[in-house]
Design a binder for these strands. Sequence first.
DNA 1: AAGAATCCCAACCGCTTCGAA
DNA 2: CTTCGAAGCGGTTGGGATTCT
Length: 221
Amino acid sequence: MEGRSSEYKKGLWTVEEDKILTDYIRLHGIGKWNRVAKVTGLKRCGKSCRLRWINYLSPNVKRGNFSQEEDDLIIRLHNLLGNRWSLIAGRVPGRTDNQVKNHWNTHLSKKVGARRQGKGKVGDSSQALSKSLRKNLSTLSKSDFTPSPSSNEEGTQSQAVNEIGFEHHQSIVGLSGSQEMMRSDIDYDNCFWFSSDELDLQPPSLMEFLDKSLDFVWYGL
DNA sequence: AAGAATCCCAACCGCTTCGAA
DNA sequence: CTTCGAAGCGGTTGGGATTCT
């Protein structure tokens, strides 16, 4: 293993290496990353190739500064999900988990820290939701968060929602009773799964749940 | 001008999860 | 059921760029 790792190059990618990888993917498509070195002679391990493509070379990756809208969205998602960077990035078009993570650590964490000092701490109460939600989200695969075509509505997605529905319900109830937020403060019309104590409600899509939750826990309200 | 300090982000590392055999 | 390689994830690091003294 040690001998193998030493045959791979580390550090920043050169323009030539980028071109080799891009050409390979154009020809063979994405996946089988460990084949890249064998096929092209590129001195990079599969893991490195995958990361380089996903975070930099892919045409889906948006470059440049984050907009105010992106910042707000990330802050809200982070408030809800915590450091689930891939989930957050999945909701920010064109941004990778690495970008979001770096942006959060270098800019947004300070920004949010400053904002929280100036305001009440409603955001903190969302930690309970975040923790519980995270626990349940961790049981789901990435595909569970991708809106599936209507023909597939009864498939993975709704199954996933059913699995975690009860916990979500508890989380929101828990949130309502915690810290500063009183039951009467809650906008029941906009509060997902809060209008009834019945647990066998028609489960909405997970993305719908996230959207509702984002509005709900947004401490900037 | 130059050395030190800080910022920023690409890339790496280690661990977990997935899925095919 | 088990094994094992591939893929995915989040935390961390390295080093170039920028700012400060």
